[in-house]
Amino acid sequence: MSVSGYAVLAEGVVKRYREKGGGEKRALDGFDLAVRPGSVHGLLGPNGAGKTTAVRVLATLLRFDGGRAEVAGLDVGREARRVRGRIGLTGQYAAVDEVLTGRQNLEMFGRLFHLGGRRARQRAGELLERFDLVEAADRGAGEYSGGMRRRLDLAASMVLSPDVLFLDEPTTGLDPRGRGEVWNAVRALVAGGTTVLLTTQYLDEADRLASHITVIDRGRAIADDTPDGLKNRVGGDRIEVVVADAGDLPDAVRAVERVAAGGLVVTDAAARRAHAQVADRVAALTEVARALQDDGIAVEDIGLRRPSLDDVFLRLTGHGTETTGTETTGTETTGTETTGTETHDDASEAAA
């Protein structure tokens, strides 16, 4: 653990790429991040925002050009080899050998990590049990469902019991059942003390798993808070009424005005809808429902709504998470040293 008390810390991190036309692109432009130990921390942003670049820098796969970063109390720039011994990394697609069985995959990873034959077999058995793969242990991984392959991939990343696990869009392409299986596995890891940094474009995933979220856009962190804290930035609870008859909308507006914070009611005539922010959600719902009933107004829908992380994205970035951006692939530069052509795939962070 860092003296700062954080499992992952980034301060003013810069990562530059040389564009094909000769210009410079900053994938990270003064990026800051602080992740508390034993938590799931979400890193959210639209396509091309710098999420995958940030993970690769912190996981020592890319050198950075400025700022400082620590993982598990170790300096990423100066102690990269030691950092690699304390982390696990799972990318956007399961990196398992589909010809080998689940057990053989894990034993292979154990040997690659120099555990020795006996310890590799022992560790494989422990992980198969931990990730609920015992029954499928001796089946070829190619026969696994998407969710099972991702769990096997997670198990492989845990062979060395890392302090910090980086998950880069771990449920991309999975069906709801597969996503649920991965979520349960992640929760179990955190319950066991692992710190997880999760990048995702599924906002419900971040909402369900992360206790803290950093929003990144154009290579910089533009917000950092709990999911509820971020939602409160775009306003609190609101009451929403949809009337059955468009002619009753003015009466519904008057009923909602009585409970609206600041008296502001937003209407959508085409949808026959009126809504407003409220301070006391339960009292507001009760009062509006009673007023509409007393006036004999037929209601198609009435309820309390909370802001979503989609609303947060729209407010903070000016666009949602489904924006399809592209970042120019270029030549990586580290200071004045050119190290060759680097494929930069933040642009391929496409939402499923």
Rank of each mutant, 00 (worst) to 15 (best):
residue 155 A to M: 13
residue 207 D to L: 06
residue 11 E to Q: 14
residue 54 A to V: 11
residue 284 A to E: 13
residue 295 D to H: 06
residue 333 T to D: 06
residue 82 R to E: 15
residue 147 G to D: 01
residue 344 H to L: 07
residue 22 G to L: 12
residue 164 V to N: 00
residue 121 R to I: 03
residue 56 R to K: 15
residue 48 G to Y: 14
residue 38 G to E: 13
residue 141 A to F: 09
residue 86 R to P: 00
residue 297 I to A: 05
residue 351 A to N: 13
residue 194 T to I: 01
residue 260 A to K: 00
residue 61 L to I: 03
residue 126 E to S: 02
residue 293 Q to F: 04
residue 293 Q to A: 15
residue 306 R to P: 00
residue 3 V to G: 09
residue 269 A to C: 00
residue 278 V to A: 08
residue 332 E to S: 02
residue 77 G to A: 15
residue 294 D to H: 08
residue 234 V to K: 05
residue 199 T to I: 09
residue 327 E to Y: 07
residue 211 S to M: 10
residue 331 T to Y: 14
residue 131 F to I: 01
residue 212 H to I: 07
residue 347 A to M: 03
residue 234 V to Y: 10
residue 313 F to P: 01
residue 265 V to N: 10
residue 99 V to K: 04
residue 37 P to K: 03
residue 306 R to H: 11
residue 220 R to H: 06
residue 46 P to T: 09
residue 57 V to R: 11
residue 67 G to T: 02
residue 202 Y to C: 13
residue 324 T to K: 11
residue 280 D to G: 11
residue 71 V to K: 08
residue 325 G to I: 01
residue 98 E to N: 03
residue 184 N to E: 13
residue 130 R to F: 11
residue 206 A to P: 05
residue 201 Q to V: 03
residue 121 R to Q: 12
residue 44 L to E: 03
residue 278 V to F: 11
residue 106 L to I: 02
residue 253 V to R: 08
residue 60 T to E: 04
residue 18 R to M: 12
residue 347 A to T: 01
residue 323 T to L: 15
residue 156 A to K: 14
residue 172 T to F: 07
residue 237 D to Y: 02
residue 110 G to A: 13
residue 47 N to K: 07
residue 245 D to A: 09
residue 140 G to D: 00
residue 22 G to A: 08
residue 7 A to F: 09
residue 249 L to F: 04
residue 224 D to V: 12
residue 213 I to W: 03
residue 257 E to S: 12
residue 297 I to W: 02
residue 167 L to F: 06
residue 249 L to R: 02
residue 331 T to V: 15
residue 317 T to W: 09
residue 199 T to Q: 03
residue 235 G to F: 15
residue 75 D to K: 07
residue 119 R to H: 08
residue 166 F to W: 10
residue 188 A to G: 08
residue 347 A to R: 12
residue 172 T to Q: 06
residue 346 D to Q: 11
residue 41 H to R: 08
residue 255 A to R: 01
residue 278 V to T: 05
residue 187 R to K: 10
residue 15 K to I: 12
residue 235 G to L: 15
residue 5 G to Y: 10
residue 207 D to N: 09
residue 64 F to Q: 03
residue 109 F to Y: 13
residue 12 G to D: 10
residue 46 P to L: 12
residue 95 A to C: 01
residue 196 V to W: 05
residue 241 V to I: 01
residue 233 R to S: 02
residue 62 L to I: 06
